[in-house]
Each structure stands twice: as structure tokens, then as C-alpha cells.
Computed example of a mutant assay.
Amino acid sequence: MGAVFRAPADAAYPSAIWFAAADADRDGRLTLAEFLADAEASFARFDLNHDGEIDPTEMTAYEGDVPEISLYQRGQRLPANGRERKEAARYGGALGAGRYAQLNIPQPIASADLDFNRGVSRDEWRTVAARRFQLLGPVDGALTLAALKPTPAQETMLQCAADAAKKAKKR
């Protein structure tokens, strides 16, 4: 829902940090109620003037605080090898925040503007949160961290680690 989680290289991947924070009862399962509570907390952080709507000024502030969502980051390029190109195509060529998220949504706040009035109301936010929960594929009414697919950024990190391990083994 747009909240940003960053972690140093030796820490858990940010998806794990998010999941642990959202799993209120610490049972390893994220229910719709927990997901919506986490989304509500995000809405409260993004609605800087607390008027019940995330307006264009607040979206701009969010984008300034989260440079990772820039659609065209300096130095961004298509993957060089065939496997990485195939993976980028499979995921739909993730852009913006989609590179760091479970869903390929370049700007998670602006995309919640269901009535296209350039603002996101609390009702729109809740509706979109419920839809996104379903898109993540809950099983028996809940998500588990193990069942969530790696983000494109996480896949890149895992591949780099695997390549480094192969290289080290050859030495």
C-alpha cells in the first residue's frame, strides 16, 4: 500500500519486515483484517493534513520521500542476459514501486484514486487495499510470507548472491 521498508544487506528482506509488522497477532498469517489495519496506518501517514484524503500535494511529498518509485531512475537499463530479460517480461517489466513490491504497481497511492479526482479518500484506500489483498492470493483467508513471491528487486539480489557464490566456487 505504499509504505516503505528498507533493510541493510545483512538483514531480512523488506517484505519480511513489512509482514512481521502487519501480522498483529504474530501467528505467521496475515488476514484481511490485519492487512486492512496496516493499510489504514499507511493512509494515516500519507494524509499529512489529516483531512481524510491523500491529495496531490501529499502524493508529491510521498514521491519526494521515496526516490525508489521514480519510474525512470538514472542508470536503469534492460537486463543484459536472456534469463533476466525473460524474467522482466514475465513480471510485466516492473516499474517504479513495482520493482520493490509484491504487485507491479508503479505508484501505489495514485493508483488508488478510483474516481480520478486526483485525490484518494479513505473509502477508496480501503477498497483498493481489499482488492490488493485478494490479488496477493490468500489461502484459507490469509497470506503467509513463504507463499508471497519474491519482488523483482529481491529476485535480482538472490540472483546476484547465487552468481557470486558460483564465481567464488570456481576460484
Rank of each mutant, 00 (worst) to 15 (best):
L78P: 06
L78M: 11
P79S: 05
P79E: 09
A80L: 11
N81F: 04
N81V: 08
N81S: 13
G82K: 10
G82M: 10
R83D: 11
R83M: 09
E84Y: 00
E84R: 09
E84D: 11
R85C: 06
R85P: 02
K86A: 14
A88N: 14
A89Y: 06
R90Q: 12
Y91P: 02
Y91G: 08
Y91E: 13
Y91I: 01
G92Q: 10
G93M: 10
L95A: 14
L95W: 04
L95M: 14
G96V: 03
G96S: 08
A97Q: 04
A97H: 01
A97G: 08
G98N: 03
G98D: 02
G98V: 03
Y100S: 07
Q102K: 12
Q102R: 13
L103P: 07
L103N: 07
N104L: 06
N104A: 14
I105A: 10
P106A: 12
Q107D: 13
I109Y: 04
I109R: 01
A110R: 15
S111L: 00
A112Y: 02
A112G: 03
A112Q: 04
A112V: 05
A112R: 09
D113S: 08
D113G: 02
L114A: 09
D115K: 11
D115F: 00
N117H: 07
R118S: 08
R118D: 06
V120G: 07
R122G: 07
R122T: 01
R122D: 03
D123R: 12
D123E: 13
E124M: 02
E124G: 03
W125E: 04
R126K: 12
R126L: 02
T127L: 10
V128A: 11
V128R: 13
A129C: 09
A130F: 00
R131T: 03
R131M: 04
R132N: 08
R132Y: 03
R132I: 02
L135F: 04
L135R: 15
L136D: 10
G137S: 05
G137F: 04
P138T: 08
P138Y: 01
P138G: 07
P138E: 01
V139T: 15
D140C: 07
D140H: 13
D140F: 02
G141L: 03
A142E: 10
A142Y: 07
A142T: 14
A142R: 13
L143H: 09
L143E: 04
T144A: 06
T144P: 10
L145Y: 09
L145V: 10
A146Q: 15
A147F: 00
L148V: 03
K149N: 09
K149T: 06
K149R: 14
T151A: 06
P152K: 11
A153I: 01
A153V: 01
Q154R: 13
Q154F: 01
E155T: 06
E155Q: 12
T156V: 09
M157L: 15
M157G: 14
L158P: 00
Q159Y: 01
Q159H: 09
Q159P: 00
Q159D: 12
C160S: 15
C160Q: 15
